[in-house]
């Protein structure tokens, strides 16, 4: 499979690059965000495409992808859930929230590691990972589902029902 970049997407990438008149390399993160938003994750071809777009060696892009927790190298579910793990949310029950979402979606987190933090449900609909502090400590437990933010989550069924 070779990477197909729709014209609209490339236009968006080109526009983002104009935000960095001093150095194209500064556009690595925004270009990767644009690609991940479209494809769901960053694969080798996306890395090479980004590198050639920004006139960089691919390693300069790969080292960024592997460093930042915000970039994924494998496919998430249709809805990717990030549950805040850090202290205030943990005190408010984020570990229990994580357990409950996994139970209801059939996600098995036993194979999760630091370098491979995402677990996907058997039907591919949901994936989940812990995130570090999402900066909403007063309304824990909180989570992100794709780009939607949910606070003080107590009704897990109600939360999941919003995502068909």
């Amino acid at each position: 499979m070779s990477l197909e970049i729709p014209t609209e997407l490339e236009k968006e990438v080109d526009e983002r690059i104009t935000h960095y008149p001093v150095s194209k390399r500064s556009a690595v993160l925004p270009v990767l965000h644009t690609l991940q938003h479209h494809f769901g994750f960053i694969d080798e071809e996306a890395i090479e495409w980004t590198a050639s777009k920004l006139e960089l060696e691919p390693i300069k892009v790969l080292e960024v992808v592997t460093f930042y927790p915000g970039f994924r190298q494998s496919a998430p579910g249709k809805y990717h859930v990030r549950v805040c793990r850090t202290l205030s949310c943990a005190m408010a029950g984020s570990y229990e929230l994580m357990e409950s979402i996994c139970e209801k979606t059939g996600i098995d987190r036993s194979g999760v590691t630091h370098h491979d933090p995402i677990a996907v449900s058997p039907d591919g609909k949901f994936s989940i990972e812990f995130a570090e502090c999402l900066a909403s400590c007063g309304t824990g437990p909180v989570c992100l589902v794709n780009d939607d933010f949910h606070e003080a989550v107590s009704d897990v069924d109600g939360l999941l029902k919003q995502y068909k």
Binding site: L29, A131, E132, C133
Partner: peptide, 10 residues
């Protein structure tokens, strides 16, 4: 002024 998004690193 431009908005630049990070990628989840404290």
């Amino acid at each position: 002024i431009y908005v630049h998004r990070g990628a989840g690193a404290y």
